[in-house]
Protein backbone atom coordinates (compact mmCIF):
# COMPACT_ATOMS: atom_id res chain seq x y z
CA UNK A 1 0.00 0.00 0.00
CA UNK A 2 1.09 3.56 -0.64
CA UNK A 3 1.24 5.95 2.30
CA UNK A 4 -1.80 7.93 1.17
CA UNK A 5 -5.13 7.09 -0.40
CA UNK A 6 -5.82 10.06 -2.64
CA UNK A 7 -7.42 8.44 -5.66
CA UNK A 8 -8.38 5.05 -7.02
CA UNK A 9 -5.16 4.93 -9.03
CA UNK A 10 -3.22 4.68 -5.77
CA UNK A 11 -4.48 1.10 -5.52
CA UNK A 12 -3.29 -1.60 -7.85
CA UNK A 13 -5.32 -4.78 -8.11
CA UNK A 14 -3.49 -6.50 -5.28
CA UNK A 15 -3.87 -3.52 -2.93
CA UNK A 16 -7.54 -3.05 -3.77
CA UNK A 17 -8.22 -6.72 -3.20
CA UNK A 18 -6.31 -6.56 0.07
CA UNK A 19 -8.53 -3.71 1.27
CA UNK A 20 -11.68 -5.65 0.38
CA UNK A 21 -10.37 -8.85 1.98
CA UNK A 22 -9.34 -6.98 5.11
CA UNK A 23 -12.78 -5.41 5.34
CA UNK A 24 -14.30 -8.87 5.07
CA UNK A 25 -12.04 -10.14 7.86
CA UNK A 26 -12.99 -7.19 10.03
CA UNK A 27 -16.67 -7.89 9.37
CA UNK A 28 -16.16 -11.51 10.32
CA UNK A 29 -14.21 -10.63 13.46
CA UNK A 30 -16.89 -8.25 14.65
CA UNK A 31 -19.88 -10.35 13.64
CA UNK A 32 -22.02 -11.22 16.59
CA UNK A 33 -19.82 -9.31 19.02
CA UNK A 34 -21.48 -7.05 21.48
CA UNK A 35 -18.60 -4.59 21.68
CA UNK A 36 -17.73 -3.76 18.09
CA UNK A 37 -14.20 -2.67 18.76
CA UNK A 38 -10.70 -3.83 17.85
CA UNK A 39 -7.58 -2.61 19.67
CA UNK A 40 -5.40 -2.30 16.58
CA UNK A 41 -4.96 1.48 16.39
CA UNK A 42 -4.79 2.22 20.09
CA UNK A 43 -2.68 5.32 20.72
CA UNK A 44 -3.01 6.52 17.15
CA UNK A 45 -4.75 9.75 16.23
CA UNK A 46 -6.99 10.19 13.23
CA UNK A 47 -8.16 13.68 12.30
CA UNK A 48 -11.33 14.20 10.30
CA UNK A 49 -10.70 17.47 8.49
CA UNK A 50 -13.91 18.48 6.78
CA UNK A 51 -14.03 21.67 4.74
CA UNK A 52 -17.41 20.68 3.39
CA UNK A 53 -20.45 19.42 5.25
CA UNK A 54 -20.90 15.72 5.00
CA UNK A 55 -22.25 14.30 8.18
CA UNK A 56 -22.64 10.78 6.79
CA UNK A 57 -19.09 10.46 5.51
CA UNK A 58 -17.62 12.03 8.63
CA UNK A 59 -19.59 9.77 10.92
CA UNK A 60 -18.58 6.74 8.88
CA UNK A 61 -14.88 7.59 9.20
CA UNK A 62 -15.29 8.50 12.84
CA UNK A 63 -16.93 5.18 13.60
CA UNK A 64 -14.27 3.34 11.62
CA UNK A 65 -11.44 4.97 13.55
CA UNK A 66 -13.13 4.50 16.91
CA UNK A 67 -13.83 0.83 16.24
CA UNK A 68 -10.09 0.47 15.71
CA UNK A 69 -9.54 2.20 19.09
CA UNK A 70 -7.88 5.26 17.54
CA UNK A 71 -8.29 8.70 19.04
CA UNK A 72 -10.45 10.81 16.76
CA UNK A 73 -10.46 14.55 16.34
CA UNK A 74 -13.20 16.10 14.29
CA UNK A 75 -12.11 19.33 12.74
CA UNK A 76 -14.82 21.10 10.84
CA UNK A 77 -13.21 23.91 8.94
CA UNK A 78 -16.32 25.13 7.26
CA UNK A 79 -17.30 28.60 8.32
CA UNK A 80 -14.34 28.94 10.66
CA UNK A 81 -11.26 31.08 10.14
CA UNK A 82 -9.57 28.27 8.24
CA UNK A 83 -12.21 27.97 5.56
CA UNK A 84 -10.11 30.14 3.25
CA UNK A 85 -7.80 28.36 0.85
CA UNK A 86 -4.67 30.13 1.99
CA UNK A 87 -4.72 28.41 5.32
CA UNK A 88 -4.98 24.82 4.13
CA UNK A 89 -1.26 24.43 4.65
CA UNK A 90 -1.30 26.09 8.06
CA UNK A 91 -4.17 23.86 9.12
CA UNK A 92 -2.32 20.77 7.96
CA UNK A 93 0.87 21.69 9.78
CA UNK A 94 -1.04 22.55 12.93
CA UNK A 95 -2.81 19.22 12.94
CA UNK A 96 0.42 17.40 12.35
CA UNK A 97 2.11 19.28 15.16
CA UNK A 98 -0.67 18.02 17.42
CA UNK A 99 0.40 14.51 16.58
CA UNK A 100 -2.08 13.30 14.00
CA UNK A 101 -1.12 10.04 12.31
CA UNK A 102 -3.71 10.25 9.59
CA UNK A 103 -5.79 13.07 8.16
CA UNK A 104 -9.10 12.21 6.56
CA UNK A 105 -9.96 15.18 4.39
CA UNK A 106 -13.09 16.33 2.63
CA UNK A 107 -12.64 19.46 0.55
CA UNK A 108 -14.61 21.38 -2.05
CA UNK A 109 -11.54 21.82 -4.25
CA UNK A 110 -10.27 19.02 -6.47
CA UNK A 111 -6.72 18.08 -5.54
CA UNK A 112 -6.75 19.54 -2.02
CA UNK A 113 -5.79 16.14 -0.51
CA UNK A 114 -2.82 15.98 -2.90
CA UNK A 115 -1.62 19.34 -1.64
CA UNK A 116 -2.11 18.23 1.94
CA UNK A 117 -0.14 15.04 1.29
CA UNK A 118 2.78 17.13 0.05
CA UNK A 119 2.94 19.03 3.34
CA UNK A 120 2.46 16.40 6.04
CA UNK A 121 4.38 13.31 7.08
CA UNK A 122 1.37 11.25 8.13
CA UNK A 123 -1.13 9.52 5.90
CA UNK A 124 -3.82 11.40 4.02
CA UNK A 125 -7.12 9.78 3.11
CA UNK A 126 -9.26 11.54 0.56
CA UNK A 127 -12.85 11.60 1.78
CA UNK A 128 -14.03 13.42 -1.33
CA UNK A 129 -12.37 16.33 -3.14
CA UNK A 130 -14.38 18.62 -5.35
CA UNK A 131 -15.27 16.90 -8.59
CA UNK A 132 -12.22 14.68 -8.48
CA UNK A 133 -12.43 11.48 -6.41
CA UNK A 134 -13.89 9.75 -3.39
CA UNK A 135 -11.89 6.52 -3.26
CA UNK A 136 -13.36 4.97 -0.11
CA UNK A 137 -16.82 5.29 -1.66
CA UNK A 138 -15.60 3.27 -4.63
CA UNK A 139 -14.07 0.69 -2.28
CA UNK A 140 -17.30 0.29 -0.36
CA UNK A 141 -19.21 0.04 -3.62
CA UNK A 142 -16.85 -2.68 -4.87
CA UNK A 143 -17.14 -4.45 -1.53
CA UNK A 144 -20.92 -4.34 -1.76
CA UNK A 145 -20.94 -5.68 -5.33
CA UNK A 146 -18.61 -8.52 -4.40
CA UNK A 147 -20.74 -9.34 -1.38
CA UNK A 148 -23.94 -9.47 -3.42
CA UNK A 149 -22.72 -10.97 -6.68
CA UNK A 150 -19.75 -12.94 -5.42
CA UNK A 151 -17.29 -11.45 -7.90
CA UNK A 152 -16.09 -8.28 -9.60
CA UNK A 153 -14.30 -9.67 -12.64
CA UNK A 154 -16.51 -9.27 -15.69
CA UNK A 155 -19.35 -7.64 -13.77
CA UNK A 156 -21.17 -5.15 -15.98
CA UNK A 157 -21.71 -1.86 -14.18
CA UNK A 158 -23.85 1.00 -15.47
CA UNK A 159 -22.88 4.33 -13.87
CA UNK A 160 -25.79 6.64 -14.44
CA UNK A 161 -26.08 10.38 -13.94
CA UNK A 162 -23.93 13.45 -13.47
CA UNK A 163 -20.59 11.88 -14.36
CA UNK A 164 -19.07 15.28 -15.16
CA UNK A 165 -19.32 16.60 -11.62
CA UNK A 166 -19.15 13.29 -9.77
CA UNK A 167 -16.17 12.29 -7.65
CA UNK A 168 -17.93 9.01 -6.97
CA UNK A 169 -18.00 8.29 -10.69
CA UNK A 170 -14.29 9.05 -11.17
CA UNK A 171 -13.28 6.79 -8.30
CA UNK A 172 -15.57 4.00 -9.38
CA UNK A 173 -14.41 4.12 -12.99
CA UNK A 174 -10.81 3.75 -11.86
CA UNK A 175 -11.30 1.14 -9.17
CA UNK A 176 -13.84 -1.03 -10.98
CA UNK A 177 -11.56 -1.12 -14.01
CA UNK A 178 -8.65 -2.15 -11.79
CA UNK A 179 -10.77 -4.95 -10.38
CA UNK A 180 -11.85 -6.25 -13.78
CA UNK A 181 -15.41 -4.96 -14.00
CA UNK A 182 -16.81 -3.51 -17.23
CA UNK A 183 -18.18 0.00 -16.81
CA UNK A 184 -20.63 1.86 -18.99
CA UNK A 185 -21.32 5.48 -18.12
CA UNK A 186 -24.82 6.61 -18.97
CA UNK A 187 -25.73 10.28 -18.97
CA UNK A 188 -26.95 13.10 -21.15
CA UNK A 189 -23.95 14.22 -23.27
CA UNK A 190 -23.77 17.48 -21.31
CA UNK A 191 -22.92 15.58 -18.14
CA UNK A 192 -20.14 13.46 -19.65
CA UNK A 193 -16.71 15.14 -19.55
CA UNK A 194 -14.90 16.09 -22.72
CA UNK A 195 -11.99 13.68 -22.54
CA UNK A 196 -14.08 10.68 -21.45
CA UNK A 197 -12.61 8.92 -24.46
CA UNK A 198 -9.47 8.31 -22.45
CA UNK A 199 -11.41 6.51 -19.71
CA UNK A 200 -11.64 2.72 -19.69
CA UNK A 201 -15.42 2.80 -20.14
CA UNK A 202 -18.18 2.58 -22.68
CA UNK A 203 -20.36 5.66 -23.01
CA UNK A 204 -24.08 5.56 -23.66
CA UNK A 205 -26.75 8.22 -23.78
CA UNK A 206 -29.54 5.64 -23.70
CA UNK A 207 -30.38 4.16 -20.31
CA UNK A 208 -33.05 1.82 -21.67
CA UNK A 209 -30.54 0.19 -24.01
CA UNK A 210 -28.03 -0.41 -21.22
CA UNK A 211 -30.23 -1.76 -18.43
CA UNK A 212 -30.98 -5.25 -19.86
CA UNK A 213 -27.22 -5.92 -19.97
CA UNK A 214 -26.30 -4.53 -16.55
CA UNK A 215 -25.44 -6.55 -13.45
CA UNK A 216 -25.14 -3.38 -11.39
CA UNK A 217 -26.83 -0.01 -11.83
CA UNK A 218 -25.16 2.70 -9.86
CA UNK A 219 -27.25 5.84 -9.76
CA UNK A 220 -25.41 9.12 -9.16
CA UNK A 221 -26.89 12.06 -7.39
CA UNK A 222 -28.03 14.77 -9.78
CA UNK A 223 -28.43 18.25 -8.42
CA UNK A 224 -31.46 20.06 -9.75
CA UNK A 225 -29.34 23.26 -9.92
CA UNK A 226 -27.53 21.81 -12.93
CA UNK A 227 -30.64 22.64 -14.86
CA UNK A 228 -30.06 26.37 -14.45
CA UNK A 229 -26.74 25.99 -16.27
CA UNK A 230 -28.56 24.21 -19.10
CA UNK A 231 -27.08 20.78 -18.53
CA UNK A 232 -30.63 19.56 -19.04
CA UNK A 233 -33.93 21.33 -19.64
CA UNK A 234 -35.85 20.36 -16.52
CA UNK A 235 -35.82 17.95 -13.61
CA UNK A 236 -38.83 16.25 -15.13
CA UNK A 237 -37.15 15.64 -18.45
CA UNK A 238 -34.02 14.40 -16.72
CA UNK A 239 -36.02 12.01 -14.62
CA UNK A 240 -37.94 10.78 -17.66
CA UNK A 241 -34.80 10.05 -19.68
CA UNK A 242 -32.29 9.03 -16.99
CA UNK A 243 -34.22 8.31 -13.82
CA UNK A 244 -34.57 4.74 -12.54
CA UNK A 245 -38.20 3.93 -11.91
CA UNK A 246 -39.99 0.62 -11.38
CA UNK A 247 -40.73 0.15 -15.07
CA UNK A 248 -37.08 0.52 -15.99
CA UNK A 249 -35.94 -1.61 -13.07
CA UNK A 250 -38.06 -4.44 -14.40
CA UNK A 251 -35.90 -4.60 -17.55
CA UNK A 252 -32.80 -5.51 -15.51
CA UNK A 253 -31.50 -9.09 -15.40
CA UNK A 254 -32.88 -11.07 -12.45
CA UNK A 255 -29.85 -10.83 -10.17
CA UNK A 256 -28.97 -7.23 -10.95
CA UNK A 257 -28.59 -4.81 -8.08
CA UNK A 258 -29.26 -1.10 -7.73
CA UNK A 259 -26.81 1.13 -5.90
CA UNK A 260 -26.71 4.76 -4.83
CA UNK A 261 -23.95 6.52 -2.89
CA UNK A 262 -26.47 8.80 -1.19
CA UNK A 263 -27.85 11.18 -0.40
CA UNK A 264 -30.65 10.36 -2.83
CA UNK A 265 -32.98 12.69 -4.64
CA UNK A 266 -36.00 10.44 -4.56
CA UNK A 267 -38.16 11.12 -7.57
CA UNK A 268 -35.28 12.68 -9.47
CA UNK A 269 -32.67 10.07 -10.35
CA UNK A 270 -34.30 7.24 -8.42
CA UNK A 271 -37.91 6.38 -7.64
CA UNK A 272 -38.85 5.56 -4.07
CA UNK A 273 -40.04 2.05 -4.92
CA UNK A 274 -36.65 1.34 -6.53
CA UNK A 275 -34.67 2.69 -3.59
CA UNK A 276 -36.68 0.53 -1.23
CA UNK A 277 -36.74 -2.61 -3.39
CA UNK A 278 -34.89 -5.88 -2.72
CA UNK A 279 -32.45 -5.04 -5.51
CA UNK A 280 -31.38 -1.94 -3.63
CA UNK A 281 -28.11 -2.12 -1.69
CA UNK A 282 -28.33 1.39 -0.37
CA UNK A 283 -28.55 0.46 3.30
CA UNK A 284 -25.82 -2.20 3.01
CA UNK A 285 -23.55 0.37 1.37
CA UNK A 286 -23.73 2.52 4.48
CA UNK A 287 -22.76 -0.36 6.77
CA UNK A 288 -20.04 -1.55 4.42
CA UNK A 289 -18.63 1.95 4.39
CA UNK A 290 -17.55 1.61 7.99
CA UNK A 291 -15.87 -1.78 7.42
CA UNK A 292 -14.01 -0.61 4.33
CA UNK A 293 -12.83 2.57 6.03
CA UNK A 294 -11.63 0.51 8.96
CA UNK A 295 -9.64 -1.61 6.52
CA UNK A 296 -8.15 1.47 4.86
CA UNK A 297 -7.10 3.09 8.14
CA UNK A 298 -5.75 -0.21 9.42
CA UNK A 299 -3.65 -0.83 6.32
CA UNK A 300 -2.40 2.75 5.97
CA UNK A 301 -1.43 3.09 9.61
CA UNK A 302 0.14 -0.35 9.65
CA UNK A 303 -1.83 -1.39 12.68
CA UNK A 304 -1.20 -4.89 14.06
CA UNK A 305 -3.64 -6.98 15.98
CA UNK A 306 -2.47 -7.61 19.51
Amino acid sequence: MKRHLLEAADLDRADATLVLDTAAQIDAALAGREVKKLPTLRGRTVVNLFFEDSTRTRISFELAAKRLSADVINFSAKGSSVSKGESLKDTALTLEAMGSDAIVVRHHASGAPHRLASWVKGSVVNAGDGTHEHPTQALLDAYTIRQRLGRLEGVRVALVGDVLHSRVARSNVGLLHTLGAEVTVVAPPTLVPVGVGSWPVEVSYDLDAVLPKADVVMMLRVQAERMTASFFPSAREYSRRYGLDARRMATLPDDAIVMHPGPMNRGMEIAAEVADSVRSTIVEQVGNGVSVRMAVLYLLLGGRSE
Binding site: G111, G130, T131
Partner: peptide, 18 residues
Protein backbone atom coordinates in the same frame (compact mmCIF):
# COMPACT_ATOMS: atom_id res chain seq x y z
CA UNK B 1 -12.47 26.99 -15.57
CA UNK B 2 -9.29 25.66 -13.99
CA UNK B 3 -7.25 23.95 -16.69
CA UNK B 4 -7.24 22.91 -20.34
CA UNK B 5 -10.36 20.92 -21.11
CA UNK B 6 -9.39 17.48 -22.31
CA UNK B 7 -8.33 14.06 -21.10
CA UNK B 8 -6.50 15.37 -18.07
CA UNK B 9 -9.21 17.72 -16.84
CA UNK B 10 -11.69 14.85 -17.14
CA UNK B 11 -9.57 12.69 -14.88
CA UNK B 12 -8.38 15.36 -12.45
CA UNK B 13 -11.87 16.68 -11.92
CA UNK B 14 -10.87 20.26 -12.67
CA UNK B 15 -13.34 22.35 -14.65
CA UNK B 16 -12.22 22.65 -18.26
CA UNK B 17 -11.09 25.72 -20.20
CA UNK B 18 -11.89 24.74 -23.78
Amino acid sequence: AQMHEGDRSARLGLAGWP
